[in-house]
Simulated assay, not measured.
Amino acid sequence: MNFFDSACQEPARKDDLFGLCDDQDGTKAYTNTDDSSRWVATVQNESHVELIFTAIDNCVIMGDEEQGRKRCDGMLSSIEHIYFVELKNQREGWIADAIAQLESTIRFFMEHHDISRFRYKKAFACNKRHRPFKVIDNEVRRRFFSNCHFHVDVQAHIIVV
């Protein structure tokens, strides 16, 4: 399983602002700069870090692969950054599922790649219907960090540091 497969990656972008989209139709997630109404998450990149978006669900891991194991929609990466992103469009009951998808995907990644080379590691559970920041239980945060060595946020605004 190659999370850096160029067939699943978009060209690097340095835009100040762009969106992450998932049409929820069985196709892979993607980035967008011209139609913010389609954005599930907004990426703010004022430092102009060269970011590569990799579609994980329906590309790195196809729908029929790894049955019973969850996977998130995508990954943003640079030389120093790795951000895993789950994109939702639900009203209720989505946070626990999104966190489980992120944790499972990070485990997949660590089974096949060296995570230690990245300085900034974060996971984002984003929901188009719940754009503002959502507070999650500190115990959930601690458990996630203990299991994955990643910080997790439930918000649709990703700021690249």
Rank of each mutant, 00 (worst) to 15 (best):
A156Q: 03
E50Q: 14
K70C: 06
R91P: 00
A156Y: 02
S36R: 07
L76S: 05
C72Q: 02
D114F: 02
R143W: 04
T105I: 08
T33E: 06
F150A: 13
S146I: 03
H112I: 01
R38G: 06
F124Q: 04
I115K: 11
F145I: 01
F124I: 13
E10T: 10
F18L: 14
F109M: 07
F133Q: 14
T27H: 11
E10C: 05
V60Q: 05
D114K: 14
D64P: 01
F109I: 03
M75A: 07
V161A: 07
R143V: 13
F150K: 09
M75T: 00
V161Q: 05
I158D: 02
A7L: 11
L102W: 02
G19T: 04
E46C: 09
D97W: 03
N138K: 12
I56A: 08
F18K: 01
K134L: 12
K88C: 06
Q90G: 04
H149S: 14
I106W: 05
K14Y: 03
K14I: 11
V40T: 14
A41D: 04
H113E: 15
G68D: 06
R69N: 10
I106G: 06
F109C: 04
C148A: 08
D35L: 08
G26N: 06
V85G: 05
E10L: 09
D73R: 08
V40R: 08
V140S: 12
I159K: 09
K122Y: 03
C72H: 02
E46K: 15
L102I: 01
C59P: 01
W39E: 05
G93P: 01
V60S: 04
E103I: 03
G68N: 11
R117Q: 14
R119H: 09
E103N: 12
F84G: 02
R71V: 14
A123P: 00
A98F: 04
E103K: 15
R142M: 09
W94T: 01
C148L: 10
L102D: 00
M62H: 07
F145N: 15
E65H: 09
Q44T: 15
D16M: 10
V160T: 11
A55V: 06
R141P: 00
S146E: 13
R107L: 13
D97S: 12
D23A: 09
N89C: 11
S77D: 00
T31G: 07
R141D: 04
D64H: 14
K134S: 15
K128R: 12
I159L: 08
E46T: 13
I95P: 00
F124G: 05
